[in-house]
Nucleic acid binder design. Structure first.
Length: 469
RNA sequence: GACCCCAUCGUCUAGAGGCCUAGGACAUCAGCCUUUCACGCUGAAGACACGGGUUCGACUCCCGUUGGGGUCGCCA
């Protein structure tokens, strides 16, 4: 049997990390088993569904590297099949028309609540004579759910879960306007799409009972279910906008690499021994449902950042430069020339270990491409006192006389110079950093000088010396 | 409230009855490295929710309690 999984978001907002993780698990499971991963947009709620949300979901999945097979299915377009299934159940006596008004239903819930029972529909139209139907009221079609016995779901993550059928009521299949409800649409679509494994959030576990009953009534086999624990916010409650449940694009904007996010999401609720850093291919090879945990997890940004730092270091210099190019070009107000690009590529090995996200990487790289005279911040300016400046002007001659401009040559020269001056290395290195970088923090200063090139280095020193005179 | 699910360091987790003196990662703290900041390295602190069973032996199995979460729509 070929594995077919699906990700079925409702397009009412961006792709948040909970959805992203659900998609990731479905994708991984399909890829691991050489199966197919399908997409279904659950847009039967016409009021709340938007095209922007659909686009955001596609973008988010693509950015995360979760590619899907076949054309995405628009659930709304499958309405005829849903209606047909509902009518078939009606014909077979497995569903019935219900004329209860919203007010009646609200009353019913009110009473159930007061009496400490579940707030269920009482089935008042279940066996009633259709002749009693009030005129002028469009009925809904309800499923005639079994009242005796229990319904069992064999969940790949949660194990065997059972509920007494008395706890379940006759759900609405078709609304009074003739459109299908989620419960019906999911079942019909999962069947028609040949879904073999439904991997979704824990919040659907209760739905699985009803869906199982529906599958049975329709004479179909339900997919294998796997209800993965939800991701919680810092307060331990289901992630929502209140917790800053961000869309994946927000993480992208924070400078998170998609591989890092995927790795972080994967480790939330799934593990492989003590392994923390799991590359995509490795994840596909290792992923399976039996390693999915059962408790809800909280999302930790610190850990994501640390993972991100790792992935940044794994990324090739030129790719890193490309990913920070937009930031940099915005900062200097023009396109980066090829000379600056080359310089940045040479600078990346020194910069990358210092950054845990692309935004700070871009910020730390900015001085390399800044136009002279570069800005010098207050702390750095303090390094450029009179003594430092005179030392720097002598250093100028030393640099000028160097026969080759390489990191180790520069280092030897500066160390020798400091020693000759009877100064500590820091007394020379820090002022030098101040004029080359404009800040007191940077990669190794000899490396900086080497990457900058002799001419630029000398010019920046001269800028600093000249500015106060 | 009813039903369903869950429960190991602050956080993510390892743990399939003796391998546990409970391991790893992030965060925290200390030290080393060092021209700065990082990276890296070394070390420290830090958890089996509680109570009963079962067993020669429970973090592991069972029951209960407590706590947390989810669901109870003509939303999905």
């Amino acid at each position: 049997m070929t594995v077919v999984t699906r990700f079925a978001p409702s397009p009412t907002g961006f792709l948040h990390i909970g959805g992203a993780r659900t998609a990731l698990f479905n994708w991984l499971y399909a890829r691991h088993h050489g199966g197919r991963f399908l997409l279904r947009i659950e847009d039967t709620d016409r009021r709340r569904s938007t095209d922007e949300a659909v686009a955001a979901i596609f973008d988010g999945l693509s950015w995360l590297g979760l590619d899907w097979d076949d054309e995405p299915v628009r659930q709304f377009s499958r309405l005829p099949s849903h209606v047909e299934a509902a009518h078939r159940l009606l014909d077979e006596g497995k569903a019935y028309r219900c004329y209860a008004t919203p007010e009646e239903l609200a009353d019913m819930r009110e009473r159930a609540k007061a009496e400490g029972r579940r707030m269920l529909y009482d089935g008042r139209w279940r066996d009633r004579d259709p002749g009693d139907a009030p005129s002028g009221v469009d009925p809904v079609i309800r499923f005639k759910a079994p009242r005796e016995g229990e319904t069992v779901v064999e969940d790949a993550v949660q194990g065997t879960v059972r509920v007494a059928n008395g706890q379940l009521d006759d759900m609405v299949l078709l609304r009074s306007d003739g459109t299908p409800t989620y419960m019906l649409a999911v079942v019909v679509d999962d069947h028609d799409m040949g879904i073999t494994h439904a991997i979704r959030g824990d919040d659907h576990l209760n739905n699985a009972f009803r869906q199982t009953q529906l599958f049975r009534a329709l004479g179909w086999e339900a997919p294998a279910y796997a209800h993965i624990p939800l991701i919680h916010g810092a307060d331990g409650a289901k992630l929502s906008k209140r917790h800053g449940a961000l869309g994946v694009e927000a993480y992208r904007d924070m400078g998170i690499l998609p591989d890092a996010l995927a790795n972080g999401l994967l480790r939330l609720g799934w593990s492989h021994g003590d392994d923390e850093i799991i590359a995509r291919d490795q994840a596909i090879e290792w992923f399976d449902l039996d390693r999915v945990g059962r408790g809800a997890a909280r999302f930790d940004l610190d850990k994501l950042m640390s993972l991100n730092a790792h992935y940044i270091q794994q990324t090739k210099p030129h790719a890193l430069v490309e990913s920070i190019r937009p930031h940099l070009e915005r900062a200097i107000g023009k396109a980066l020339g090829s000379d600056n690009t080359d310089r940045l590529i040479r600078a990346m090995p020194g910069l990358a270990p210092r950054a845990n996200n692309l935004v700070s990487l871009a910020e730390s790289a900015a001085f390399y491409v800044a136009e002279r005279p570069i800005a010098v911040d207050a702390k750095a300016a303090r390094q450029l006192g009179e003594d430092s400046r005179s030392a720097l002007s002598e250093l100028l001659d030393v640099f000028d006389a160097l026969d080759s401009w390489e990191e180790d040559k520069i280092e030897m020269a500066v160390r020798g110079f400091a020693q000759a001056q009877g100064a500590k290395l820091g007394a020379v290195a820090q002022p030098l950093r101040a004029c080359l970088v404009g800040k007191t923090v940077s990669p190794g200063i000899f490396e900086v000088a080497a990457v900058l090139g002799r001419e630029e280095t000398l010019d920046r020193i001269r800028d600093a010396l000249g500015s106060d005179e």
